[in-house]
Amino acid sequence: MHIPDGFLDLSICAMMYLLVIPLWIFALRGMKRVLSDKQVPFMATLTAMFFAAQMMNYPIIGGTTAHLLGGPILAITLGPYAGLISMTIILLIQAFFFGDGGVITFGANAWNMGVVGVFVPYLMFLLFMKVMKNRNGMMVGAFLGALLGDVFAAIFAGLELGLSVFTFPYSVQIAITAMGVHHFFIGLGEGIVTAMIILFLLRQRADLLKLPRVAPLWLSSIGFEEL
């Protein structure tokens, strides 16, 4: 889903930067509120772990493999703002050192995977925790959250690609369908793995699901009392 430079129009790239910059500012403020500046190394090691985890492939239907985006599990364990910052770091390193993604398209990639891919799973997870109030709710929330997060992120990517009439040669419909269908299957895998990780963590170290979450103020007070 990493969009390289040369795929998106300048206007689209600029717009995506404008969308994502305020969220970076809010997220940095949220980080300052919940974690101190000094806890940066702690967040950084977790980010490095997710970077390595992105290299583990899981099989999806049709004999192909896909890898985790990591957004959902980051959002659930650390909160969406921390998840956004972590994903941003991962994407920066990938863009600069692995040739995945680009500099000008960075805003778009950060929006798709860092904002949509993190906030959608988090909100779904909260919703199911509120409604079902038990472990099953967590599993369903984690699964659906990860699935929808992947699909929505892919749809946004397709939309950006399709709207780039100058650089991208296919229409919006084709781009969205191709990205959406492909990432539905990837999202199924991501959903199953995310739900399983939550289950394992609940069994082994339930305290790790009670870490302070860096979330918007209106969200941070709800949802996790039932754990």
Partner: peptide, 11 residues
């Protein structure tokens, strides 16, 4: 999934 959660706890 179990490997990832172990990796998560270790990290």
């Amino acid at each position: 999934a179990s490997m990832m959660s172990t990796l998560f706890i270790r990290s």
